[in-house]
Every structure is written in structure tokens, then in C-alpha cells.
Design a protein around this nucleic acid. Structure first.
Lengths: 344, 344
DNA sequence: CTGTTAGCGCCTTCAT
DNA sequence: ATGAAGGCGCTAACAG
């Protein structure tokens, strides 16, 4: 046993098994055909006795295979991201990889920082669910040949594997549902659009679905998260202007849906009664809130899982052109979008 | 620039700056007093030009300082764990550490496996929010001198830093609140107690608070997560037996509270009306569910943050005896525990 | 101030 | 079938 670190090294094992490090290394890598039965047993015993565990650090240094996957998330507290994380994690567990987790807190320079950091840990691939990046950073990454998979959001003009929702179909279905239910004034509430393609796509599909309908009013607004007062003001204003016709709200993601629901609560607006409410992302509590909240559920867990699988394929050398995986959403109808007959 | 890995190494920088690796290393470690202005500038330029980033792997191998923290979580999808994670992550970000995340899915052998794995990555400390561990594993860890901080749950007879809730006070306060509100039959619903000290402590405090009260009935039951039918049956049975007196339920944690609420929904039992409901752990949607759900909020974020800080202290050499940090909970009263006057 | 030398723990030729 | 030697990228003496 090595005196200083307290941990046995490959040399200690070799010594204990009365052999050289090479054979132990072979043993560790499963090259048993190159080992006599006797030697193999000695090594097994030595490892057991010394409680030896190979150092992934040293291994990674030498071979480049660290079995580490980097994950960059914009905001872990977001329920969507959490489920994505959950899927990725399960896939990691299944494939023997470990996750290095980085939360950028939606800050752009953190993103840059973590990208660097992860590559300095020699991760074998990077999964990203946060995109504010500019070309400079990306080029560096691309040169490094580090496989990268984007989740949910993608980057314009940057060819890269992507896993995301079929935003167009989903947003159209959501809008159509509200129209079918009789709503005639619909407010699309989004976090600031920025360069987040997801938000743009959903909004565009919403507007496209509405533009044909001369009998219905479409409005849109951007609000940052955690601005309850502003949100409340917006909702009150919207409702006040259209209270004579069935009106509804679409929230662009789960985090926002929560805040919208809270604001409505404070305004004493009952969803499903006074106003319709539909939110992207399924929420575990959606059925418990009043008459329930209609959601556009994404197969988040499976998307996370799939993202890691895609990364693994790249790690194993697949160099097919970048692939864009588009998953279908599912509209889960609950009481918040109850049917409105005219004037009711 | 190194041909094979595509990444510049310290040697490349040394060459480009026309100096030796040592000086570059010194530069990297901020030992500027040992570098002439001229040399320093050459190095700066070389690093810039080569886009050099030191390999954390190699660094870790040599110095033992990997700046990596291992985190073992029983179940990331648990809201409690998520917020803990969130706090830990923030503390990591603030201190320049990176998280290696492992989710055991509540499986004991995974726990063992990950403990090994993390130490093989030379993490500098391990944070654990999942405890099924037995002595064998722990002893190995303890010998390795790897700092470890337990969160929420602790292990009997294993002296170790712990960050947790003041379960006794919290559970007493919760129970007392229900009694004060007039409830006279209270069911304590827990996940299987197992060796999870947290659940035991909360139950014990509940029973202690109830035992003095000859006028009130205390019951308890254990249910595994995701057994909706059984849960429903239990609740129906409990309510049916005590519907003539104000009765209430305490759920031992947030995950369970969600399931209890769902079961009540299906049974058409309205919390705050037909039955009282109080759950450990604050839920972001607690105020939105019917008249709101009364919760016992834990300062989860700060607890996670504090856990990492404690780990840092150990990393920096603090060898004071194990410290048990007990944080106070806060009862957040909502409509689900509305006051019951007799017979109403 | 600066460079040389020797490893950290492991894997990989290349001999034997 | 086995082992010795060299090196991955970095740091830490030890000289100058």
C-alpha cells in the first residue's frame, strides 16, 4: 500500500502479486487470454486484499478515455431541465459514464467558462441545454472534435446534433385546441425571446395558426421570470380588455406556467372559469391545481436519454452528418381549457 | 500544438514562449514573483495564441487537487433533493469546484458502486444524500480520509459531518398545529421507515406529541412511493373510520405529499374541507392546489450550500470532530389545515 | 529569476 | 505468457 495517498496503486498490486505492472494493467483491461490462470488468480487476490481501485485520473490522462460526460444546464431548478437531467443520468448509469454537472444560471460567461472547464477535464462529450454561445466559443469546440449534443435549444448556423421538441406541431396543436374550445382572444406569454429558437418557433407557430382566424385575437408578450408584479399587471390588463369574450393564455414553458398560475391566483382569476390556461411542459402537479392545467407534455426523460445515446454514438466514432432529433409533444387536456360556448 | 490530441500542452506553451515547462507551470499557479516581466508576457502570449488550457486530469494526478466534488443522491427527481443539489451547485460554482453527480435510484449497490467510482476519480470530498450503507463501505471510506458530508439522512454509529433538519422540533410543531386546528385523528404516512433516521425521528416526535393527548387518535402507516392504489385504499379507510371527527394526514416528505394529494383527489376528498393535510418539504405549487397545502418548509438551498462549505473546510484541513448541523424548519400554513371546530 | 530532473498512476510498444 | 521501459501533462524539488 502506498504510504502517502493511502490508496493502493497498480505497482502495489504488482508487487503483492509478484508480477509486473503490465500484467496487472492487462488484467484490468480484461485481456485475460494473455494471462495464465495462476497469475490471474494472484492478481485477483492482491486487488481484493489491497482494495485496489484503478485511478480514473491516471487512466484518463493516458488513454483519453475518462468516461466522463459534461453537462451544461441553464437552470437546474427548471422542471423541464430536471427531467432532461434525469434521463441523461439514467443513460449514463446504464453505460458506465459519469456526469460532470455545470449550471450556468443563465449567464452567458458561465457558459463559456464551463465549456472550457469541461474540456480541461477531458470529458468525452458535452451535452448542452443552455445556449447563448457565439461563434468564437463554438469554433474552438468544434476544432477540439469534442462531441456535443444540444438539447431543446439549438444555435443558428451551427451544425450539431440536436434533440428537441417538434415545436411547430406542438404549438399549432395547442393553439388549435384553444380555438376549438371556443377561446377567441389568446395571449402568448414568453420569456424574452432572445436567440432561443424554441421560443421563436413556438411563437411563430402560434401566430401562424391565428392569422387565418379573422374571428380571433392574438397577442403576445415577453416577461422575464420572477417578475410577479409585471406578470400580474399584464394578465389583469389582458383579461380586462377581453373579458367579454372567452380569452386564454399560453405560457411558453413550465417555469412560466407556474408563475402565470400564481399571478392568476392573486388576481382571483380562476383558470378554466374566468380565463383559459395552457402551458408547455407537463407539471407533476398540473392535475391538482384547481380544475387542472392543460399542458403540452414533452417526452423529456426519453429526450435526455436519447441525447446521451447520440453522444455515445459520436464517442464511438460515428461521424455521420449532424442529426436533428425532433420528438413529438402530447397535449394533455385538463380543466383549465374547458370548453367555452359563446358568451359564457 | 500537439499533433495528436489537438490540444496544446504545457510543453507546447513552453516551446512557443522559449522557456521551460517549469516557468509555465509557475505562471499557471500564479507564482508571478518568480517570473520576469518579459517572460511572463511571452507566456501570456503563447497561451493566448495556442488557446492553451491546462489539463485538470494531469494536474489532479500530480497534485491530488482535482477540484472535483462527488455527489451521491438517492433520487434526483425528488423535489427536496433537487433543491439541495441546487444549493450545492451554487456553492461549487462560487468556490471553483465541479460536481460529479451520481444518482443511486435508491438502490443500495449503486451507492456502493458510486462511492468507489467517486474515489477513483479522486474527488476531494463526497456529499451524500442517500444512505443505506453498511459499515464495510464506510470503513473503507473513512480510511481513505476522504471528507464526507451527509445530508438529511445520517448513519447510526458513524461519526461524520451531517447537515439536516431539526426533525424533532419540526414534527412536533406540525403535529401541534394540527391539534390546535382541532384535528382529533391524525394519520402519519411515511415511506417505509427502513434505516432512514429522518423518517424515524419525525415519526417519533409525532407520536410523542400525540401520546399526551387522550382526546386525539394517532395512527401511522408506511407506503412505498408509486403505489397509488394502496395509498388510496389507506386514505379511504382512514377517512371512513374517522369521518365523524376532524381528521388529518401528515406526509413525511414532499414526494409523498404529492401522491397523497393525488390520491385524495381521486377519492374526492377535499383537503381543508373533508380532511386535513400537512406535508414535510415546501412545494412550489403548494399554494395552487385547492385552498393550498400546509407544508413544513426546510431551508434546502441553504442546507445544500452549507454542506458544501463544510466539505470545503475539511478539504482545507479542518480536523475538528464531526459536526452536526441542525437547521430549523418553518411551518407554512395554508388552507389544507383550516381550523376545525367540533363536528364541523 | 530560470531550467533540469524526477515522478504522479496508468497504458503501450517492444522485447523476451 | 510476461515484463521493462517510456511517456501522457503536469508539478515539485533541486540546482544554478
Amino acid at each position: 500500500m502506498n504510504r502517502k495517498s493511502g490508496r493502493a496503486t497498480i505497482s502495489d498490486v504488482a508487487k503483492a502479486a509478484q508480477t509486473g505492472k503490465t500484467s496487472v494493467s492487462r488484467y484490468l483491461n480484461g485481456e485475460f487470454d494473455a494471462l495464465s490462470d495462476n497469475l490471474r488468480q494472484r492478481i485477483t487476490a492482491a486487488i481484493e486484499q489491497l482494495e485496489y481501485r484503478p485511478s480514473q485520473m491516471a487512466r484518463g490522462l493516458k488513454r483519453g478515455r475518462t468516461r466522463l460526460i459534461g453537462l451544461i444546464i441553464a437552470d437546474i431548478t427548471n422542471p423541464y431541465s430536471l427531467e432532461i437531467l434525469s434521463g441523461i443520468e439514467a443513460a449514463c448509469r446504464a453505460s458506465g459514464f459519469t456526469l460532470l454537472m455545470c449550471n450556468t444560471n443563465n449567464e452567458l460567461d458561465q457558459e463559456r467558462h464551463y465549456l472550457d472547464l469541461l474540456s480541461s477535464y477531458q470529458v468525452e462529450a458535452i451535452l448542452v441545454n443552455a445556449v447563448g454561445m457565439r461563434e468564437e466559443v463554438l469554433n474552438r469546440l468544434q476544432q477540439s472534435l469534442l462531441p456535443m449534443v444540444l438539447i431543446d435549444r439549438k444555435i443558428a448556423d451551427f451544425p450539431c446534433d440536436v434533440v428537441g421538441l417538434d415545436n411547430k406541431t406542438a404549438a399549432s396543436a395547442a393553439t388549435q385546441h384553444l380555438l376549438d374550445q371556443g377561446y377567441r382572444a389568446i395571449l402568448f406569454i414568453s420569456e424574452p425571446l432572445g436567440t432561443v429558437n424554441t421560443r421563436h418557433e413556438r411563437l411563430r407557430a402560434f401566430e401562424t395558426s391565428m392569422v387565418h382566424r379573422a374571428d380571433a385575437i392574438a397577442e403576445r408578450v415577453e416577461v422575464a421570470l420572477n417578475q410577479p408584479d409585471e406578470l400580474q399587471r399584464l394578465l389583469a390588463d389582458f383579461h380586462q380588455r377581453y373579458q367579454h369574450i372567452p380569452c386564454a393564455v399560453i405560457a411558453v414553458n413550465g417555469a412560466l406556467t407556474l408563475q402565470v398560475a400564481r399571478a392568476m391566483r392573486r388576481l382571483n382569476l380562476r383558470w378554466g372559469e374566468d380565463i383559459g390556461l395552457l402551458g408547455f411542459d407537463e407539471l407533476e402537479w398540473a392535475e391538482l391545481a384547481g380544475p387542472g392545467i392543460t399542458t403540452l407534455k414533452q417526452p423529456t426523460f426519453r429526450m435526455g436519454y436519447a441525447a446521451l445515446q447520440q453522444a455515445l454514438r459520436r464517442i464511438e466514432g460515428d461521424d455521420a452528418p449532424p442529426e436533428e432529433q425532433i420528438w413529438p409533444g402530447e397535449l394533455i387536456i385538463r380543466g383549465s381549457t374547458r370548453s367555452r360556448t359563446e358568451g359564457n
